[in-house]
Write a protein that binds this DNA or RNA. Sequence first.
DNA 1: ACCTGAACACCGTTCAAGT
DNA 2: ACCTGAACACCGTTCAAGT
Lengths: 247, 247
Amino acid sequence: MTAEREASPRVRLNRDRVLLAAVSLADAIGIEALSMRRLAQELGVVPMALYKHVANKEELLDGMVEVIIAKIGPDESDAEWKPAVRRRVLSARHALARHPWARRVIESRTTQTPAVLSYMDSFAGMFLTGGFSADLAHHVMHALGGRMWGFTQELFVDPAATAEPVAGPPEARAALMEQMAAHYPHIAAIAASSAHDGATVVGQGCDDQFEFEFALDLLLDGFERLHREQWTSGISGPSRATPVAAD
Amino acid sequence: MTAEREASPRVRLNRDRVLLAAVSLADAIGIEALSMRRLAQELGVVPMALYKHVANKEELLDGMVEVIIAKIGPDESDAEWKPAVRRRVLSARHALARHPWARRVIESRTTQTPAVLSYMDSFAGMFLTGGFSADLAHHVMHALGGRMWGFTQELFVDPAATAEPVAGPPEARAALMEQMAAHYPHIAAIAASSAHDGATVVGQGCDDQFEFEFALDLLLDGFERLHREQWTSGISGPSRATPVAAD
DNA sequence: ACCTGAACACCGTTCAAGT
DNA sequence: ACCTGAACACCGTTCAAGT
């Protein structure tokens, strides 16, 4: 499933071939298993050959992020800011969906590459063009944060893996559920109301896309309200803004 | 700065001593430099000695998170839900502030430990006690997400490290600023309005605490509105909720 | 200009042995 | 019951050499 590329010995490496191979290798074996040595092997080359095309592993990761960003699709900020922002966020979410490692890698990068900066700039542009003050646009970009990339602010990462994985018989699972309910009554209450199957607490049976859009729209609505009310940071804090002339 | 602990040879290891040493070692040298071997050395012990007290490195990390959670301080949900949630989030933020590695570690854990689950349960409890339906409480927990721990959904991680670090003369920095403005005009516009010093774009001069509370209050206000309007997920999406009888 | 080989200073973890 | 030593199968990266 992973050694199908480059049986032919002489194809000449270049930066793009290295980056593309790294992306699909990470897709296949996971980011934690992606090593310079493993990637070199995949490309039929000695580990040190890679260092002619990327300075080090950090730069490899930066390059991989660039490859992903290129797939997000262009800015179409001609429309109103709100649907424009919404559309672009969801398109990023779509582009990153098949690269589960991308989130972790993007968040680990400290020095922003041009690709990252211009992606962020497109959001700043949508807000400013939409009539936001630079002040509000600034805070709103922070509030959006990683959601700009379509990241959920994950909490319930692996739906299946709550407490110990229960491989045992069904009655053991049921016993665990009772224990959970005893120890974490409120989570259990929430789970009971929304569980599509009763196997785990929160996380199982959640519609990720729904949860993402729920939070996104909550934020966008908040942005809209502050914009309408001509909020400025002089007052401090969204809820302490004095409404000016809403609707 | 880092080899001051345990010169005395025979103090007998135990799980707590291992975990506490791991936490302060991570504080000192960073999480990526924390290895089983390094930790063993810090404790004046051979690497394999640790494996009597933690099964492996994963369990070490889980234990370190438990140590941090223990510092968050108790749930005081007797008050109204909104200030109670707000207070607990900010108290988590405070507790985690001096352990910059904690965020990454918490997010990397897939199997939730009892300590993590009961922390989450305390939030579920505040919403339910505050009169939220299990349905709304569920989505609201997701929307809160990592902010429950006081995490910002970071984007501008390292304030100083935008593009290449400019060690050169001031005129080189100025030239870089102009380049930035040319390539990323919207970011530059925002930066110009809020820059306390003009050195970098967004990130520099931001008051992290302000940005955090801005987004938090935006969400809490949204939660309050949906609660007031008796929102249910049947309708789908906060902005598409039909207001029922607000105020 | 690009790739190779050998080496260095690290990892986490197993297994068999010591006290 | 707890700790040790040696070993295995890995890392990223440097340096000097090959074509």
